[in-house]
Design a protein around this nucleic acid. Structure first.
Lengths: 124, 124
DNA sequence: CCTCAAGTTCGCAAGTTGTCGAACTTGAGT
DNA sequence: ACTCAAGTTCGACAACTTGCGAACTTGAGG
């Protein structure tokens, strides 16, 4: 954990990997949550999956170039690489509904357990 | 083959399936070819894969809702469901570069064998 | 009916993915 | 130093994917 985590350069972000990352509903929901709520500690995400599985999804998102991870003590702050994605694949985040306000409108894609979307504050 | 092939209704097209379908470079290239060249007999597509594999990709594209297949004698005419996709997921085809002119500009995604892009005309 | 052409479907092999639990690492607090 | 909290990594496993060739189905034509 000491070494910096791998993040592809903007120019190296591959559409294949990005689309693959976004084709999983949990990962797309994470991206949407980051779009809505901005950077957050990854522990705030709560899905009905094991910690190791979540960790795997976050790794896929990070290595695809969609997400950045910054180490903050024992936590990690994750954020959407919005500018990079917008520059490299204009309109993509809109088109895949990462910018949609809430899952209620997402259609027949299937509902997920909502992550705790609190106003970024409560946490001593 | 007598029965009509399954095509999801426009409203039933799932973003998950569409993104999954598009995350394969061959399938995305097929979609781009259909966008450029319009409807065509699927035998005109030529990729360095077996017929059965191509058939599988076409099935994934059709069942995702991206493509339509019409039976014409022993052949099948495939086409991009452009209007349906544009209405359901505006901007998606642009964002995933299905509307890009040629693979030469696609970036680091990897090059594929080009399908025979003839002017769509010969069609008894 | 026989044959050809166009695709699909059926195994099958090899690789990838999503998932879990258990063990591990790292930083913070006591 | 000990313990707790936050995540990662490892090994396993079932399900799925991509790929192939062989066999099959269907329509067209002699």
């Amino acid at each position: 954990m000491r070494a910096e985590l791998f993040h592809p350069d903007r120019g190296e972000i591959s559409l294949n990997k990005v689309l693959h990352a976004l084709s999983d509903p949990i990962r797309r929901d994470i991206a949407r949550t980051l779009y809505e709520g901005g950077p957050m500690v990854c522990g705030r995400l709560s899905y009905p999956i094991a910690k190791s599985t979540l960790s795997h999804h976050l790794k896929v998102l990070r290595e695809s170039g969609l997400m950045a991870t910054e180490i903050r003590g024992t936590s990690r702050v994750i954020s959407l690489r919005r500018t990079d994605i917008d520059l490299r694949f204009p309109g993509l985040l809109d088109a895949v509904q990462v910018t949609a306000p809430a899952p209620e409108d997402a259609g027949a894609a299937g509902r997920l357990a909502a992550p705790q979307r609190e106003m970024a504050s409560a946490r001593g």
